[in-house]
């Protein structure tokens, strides 16, 4: 049955979602989400920010290839220039 298949697919998909924390707030994401995807989702693409993943700054050149994993603690660190 078509209906049953759809329901199964939705449940299947939810089980595959990962939960991470971004700036202390929980966020559910599709698996295989990269840091670049996350920045786009947060509308921070191109902004002068660094991404901290589990107490480590991820090099900018690796944002596209770094995949988020369930349980990751992410903080977006905004550059400040004041002196």
């Amino acid at each position: 049955m078509v209906g049953t298949d759809t329901t199964t697919a939705v449940i299947w998909k939810e089980e595959l979602m990962i939960e991470i924390h971004v700036n202390g707030e929980p966020m559910n994401l599709a698996p295989d989400t990269s840091l670049t995807d996350l920045l786009a989702k947060m509308e921070l693409s191109g902004r002068r920010v660094a991404i901290e993943r589990n107490l480590e700054i991820v090099p900018r050149s690796q944002h596209g290839t770094t995949r988020l994993e369930h349980g990751d603690q992410i903080e977006v660190v905004q550059a400040i220039g004041g002196g």
């Binding site: 901290e52 107490l55 480590e56 700054i57 090099p59 900018r60 050149s61 690796q62 660190v77």
Partner: peptide, 10 residues
């Protein structure tokens, strides 16, 4: 205190 590594592509 966060770890900050050199970005090879910097």
């Amino acid at each position: 205190t966060l770890k900050l590594r050199k970005d090879p592509a910097c």
